[in-house]
Design a binder for these strands. Structure first.
Length: 416
RNA sequence: GUGGGUGUAGCUCAGUUGGUUAGAGCGCUAGGUUGUGGCCCUGGAGGUCGUGGGUUCAAAUCCCAUCACCCACCCCA
């Protein structure tokens, strides 16, 4: 029988690495609730149409990266490529907007995109994100960005940069698009093939092309910030002021354009220099028109999504090691299989008292058990044999110091 | 979808112009220590050389195909 392999672009996350994931999940849950956000758990697949309409037919995600299939009823189903569309759907479907004026939600879980894998890019990848629906206050933007930054700080992510921009409302954007096209038109010969295509499909994207020649050509391109209308401008000013007040460092990047169609006004991105080509750790922005677009009542909203694989890649090495150290409290060495029942009783007593306890299950020699205890990082080892049982005691060895003493069988050990 | 790179033990990798039983380090395991870890010493297990075909007296090594992984383009978190 030939062993099967996992699907391209998927990962098995094994111990002790999985501890990093557990830790990250804990930090996300804890921080989100500290800011008053509640978890929403939505399906991992939806009707294809939701994503097509929500993300935009013309985007790469929708046009070539979705895992789409027909169910038994012949309906087109898609594995979610991102979280926002589903949350907005759930928001409208469950009338959350009528139940309370403001919905502060977050999610965490896998997303699916059929891209060619590379560093920091998997086909099943994990994101967490938040969506705040029901306010157009710039301070919702600020709160979201700050929360995003705080989570990264707690996880020991250094070398990051926060970039913000405003892409205004649709009207000012279309005006801007025209003047940008005008600018590019005279330079079409000097930019790359891809950018010539972008010029047709999505001229804003020419701005953040990575190639030197394009960057050079676009140096003096008109800035979107100068095309914002009064309200958008004011909104952007407030966001900046809010970040300043809290002391969050950022860089205004007027070339920052997000790939998804639904953004309005504020957009931002956090990049890490320790990641390679896929350096974007998280990104988001305001999407004031999406809810209506998907059939809900007009509802302004803001959200972000963060890539978990990328965050874990960017985590500081020392911090990683620290988290991955399991350190159970106590390893119970069984010196004689005859007393196995007694040993299990003892283990359960310790566990009831709140200790994390591991007990020998392989019937190995004491030497092998000690080696195992050492390897697993156990803080103490309990020595239990016939002799100890007869005397109603157990031996307790401190693995760091090597000290060993005996204690009554009923006592719970102090863990150093 | 397009490039480039890499596939040899659980892991990281050696392997000469094709030549006899394919190696090392780490890890695992047993012992040196009658019931005591780390350090040290000794032994042991573990390999369809990614897969299929071809050339050859002989292939890990050369040729063709194929698959997988990695990195980059593209795009995004």
């Amino acid at each position: 029988m030939k062993a099967l392999q996992r699907i391209k672009g998927t990962d098995d996350i094994l111990p002790p690495e999985s501890r990093l994931w557990r830790y990250l999940y804990d930090v996300v849950h804890q921080t989100m609730s500290q800011y008053g956000y509640n978890e929403i758990i939505v399906p991992m697949f939806e009707y294809t149409e939701l994503f097509a309409r929500g993300i935009g037919e013309a985007t790469d995600i929708v046009s070539k990266e979705m895992y789409t299939f027909k169910d038994m009823g012949g309906r087109s189903i898609t594995l979610r490529p991102e979280g926002t569309a589903s949350v907005v759907r759930a928001f409208t479907e469950n009338s959350l907007g009528s139940k309370s004026p403001l919905s502060k939600l977050y999610y965490i879980g896998p997303m699916f995109r059929q891209e060619k894998p590379q560093k920091g890019r998997k086909r099943q990848f994990y994101q967490f994100g938040l969506e705040v629906l029901g306010t157009d206050s710039p301070f919702a933007d600020v709160e979201g960005i700050v929360l995003n930054v705080r989570i990264l700080q707690k996880l020991g992510i250094n070398d990051t940069q926060l970039m913000i921009n405003s892409i205004g409302d649709p009207e000012s954007r279309s005006v801007y698009k025209e003047s940008l096209k005008e600018y590019i038109k005279s330079r079409l010969d000097n930019i790359c093939d891809d950018c010539r295509k972008r010029y047709e499909n999505n001229p804003l994207r020419v701005l953040d092309c990575k190639r030197q020649e394009c960057r050079k050509e676009m140096q003096n391109a008109p800035s979107i910030l100068e095309h914002l209308n009064k309200d958008s401008k004011k909104h952007f000013e407030s966001v900046k002021a809010g970040l300043d007040a809290i002391g969050i460092e950022y860089k205004i990047n007027e070339r920052l354009v997000r790939g998804l169609d639904y953004y309005t006004r504020t957009v931002y991105e956090i990049v890490s220099s320790s990641l390679g080509a896929q350096d974007s750790i998280s990104g988001g922005g305001r999407y004031d028109l999406l809810v209506e677009e998907l059939g809900g009542k007009p509802t302004p909203a803001f959200g972000f999504a963060a890539g978990i694989e990328r965050i874990i890649l960017a985590m500081d090495g020392n911090k990683r090691d620290e988290i991955m150290d399991s350190g159970i409290d106590c390893f119970i060495a069984v010196l004689d299989t005859k007393i196995l029942t007694k040993a299990f009783e003892l283990a359960e007593n310790f566990r009831k008292a709140g200790l994390s306890v591991e007990i020998e299950l392989l019937g190995r020699s004491l030497k092998a058990q000690m080696r195992e205890a050492n390897r697993s990082g156990a803080k103490t080892v309990v020595m239990l044999g016939e002799d100890e049982i007869n005397r109603n005691v157990y031996g307790l060895k401190n693995m760091a110091t090597g000290d060993q003493k005996e204690y009554p069988l009923e006592s719970i050990p102090d863990i150093p």
